[in-house]
């Protein structure tokens, strides 16, 4: 029994939320799952579809490259922020977190202007003698998409990794160096093991976000790039399509995300790092 509220009151409080999640989350997801599982041939048709395999390959590349790149950049940013004075750090953090709420569309169009076929950087590099067709094509490849994704993945990395770095006692580095370790050695031997859980958690979260998102990709390239969400999107938005096969593809997408997130939870739990923000 709690003094703060009776069990009945608490149940009544939780009810609207449970109904909302039940009706508008569990029911739709359940429908997708049953759609895939009731039609025995759905998975067979999916695995015989070369488009699916290409999409899966693209998604795995994107789901590894984008978070890895974001992790490296985010880690460096967090290291820099940790050394700033509190006020400057707060200001920088607010600026960095802005993209978290930006629509994927804003990012997409911004990158078209920056790196598209007639983008600012593309034309700038063209003046230096680079082939604009190659530079301009980059943003439409899975790696280019990864770069655009990192626009809103890096802030997530920073928000997860920064607390771990801030809580890390820097005297340990000084102690390690006084014991004879070089600066880089001290970082790798002393700091990295302690903040590793938050790094893994950040990687897993951003990876799951990158695997599931489609808005930015759709705005950038239409359905021309082979990633699983876009394959699924074209299946869903075309009429008269094979819905059970689309359900099966959805299930694969969910499975990948759940796998990555469980890994992150298992490792992040140990390190006590946990922070989740929505995907774009």
């Amino acid at each position: 029994m709690s003094v703060r509220a009776s069990r009945k009151a608490l149940a009544a409080f939780a009810l609207p939320g449970c109904i909302t999640l039940g009706l508008f989350f569990l029911l739709p997801v359940g429908a997708v799952m049953s759609g895939a599982l009731t039609d025995g041939g759905a998975f067979v048709r999916l695995v015989n579809d070369p488009v699916f395999w290409n999409g899966l390959k693209g998604t795995l590349v994107l789901g590894t490259a984008a978070p890895l790149f974001s992790l490296i950049v985010g880690f460096c940013i967090a290291l820099t922020l940790a050394r700033l004075a509190p006020k400057a750090r707060t200001a920088a953090l607010i600026a960095i977190s802005l993209p978290l709420t930006f629509s994927g569309l804003i990012v997409a169009y911004g990158f078209i202007l920056l790196l598209g076929r007639a983008g600012f950087v593309t034309l700038l590099l063209a003046k230096l003698g680079f082939d604009p067709a190659v530079i301009g094509g980059f943003i439409f490849s899975p790696f280019g998409l990864g770069l655009a994704y990192s626009y809103y993945l890096v802030p997530r990395v920073v928000l997860i990794v920064l607390p771990a770095i801030s809580n890390f006692d820097r005297n340990q580095l000084i102690a390690a160096r006084s014991l004879g370790a070089g600066a880089g050695r001290a970082l790798i031997d002393v700091m990295l093991p302690q903040i590793a859980p938050s790094l893994v958690a950040a990687f897993c979260l951003t990876s799951a976000v990158a695997v599931g998102a489609y808005g930015t990709a759709l705005a950038l390239v239409g359905t021309q790039v082979n990633i699983l969400p876009l394959v699924l999107y074209s299946k869903i938005s075309e009429t008269g399509t094979d819905l059970p096969a689309a359900s099966a593809a959805s299930l694969v997408l969910i499975a990948i995300c759940v796998l990555i997130i469980s890994l992150g939870e298992a490792v992040g739990r140990k390190g006590g790092a946990s922070k989740v923000t929505r995907q774009n």
């Binding site: 989350f25 997801v29 997708v32 599931g212 959805s250 997408l253 759940v258 995907q279």
Partner: peptide, 14 residues
């Protein structure tokens, strides 16, 4: 995060 928006949207359609 485990269920992408796209899949949820598909579920809504169904």
């Amino acid at each position: 995060v485990a269920v992408p928006d796209l899949v949820l949207a598909f579920g809504f359609i169904l």
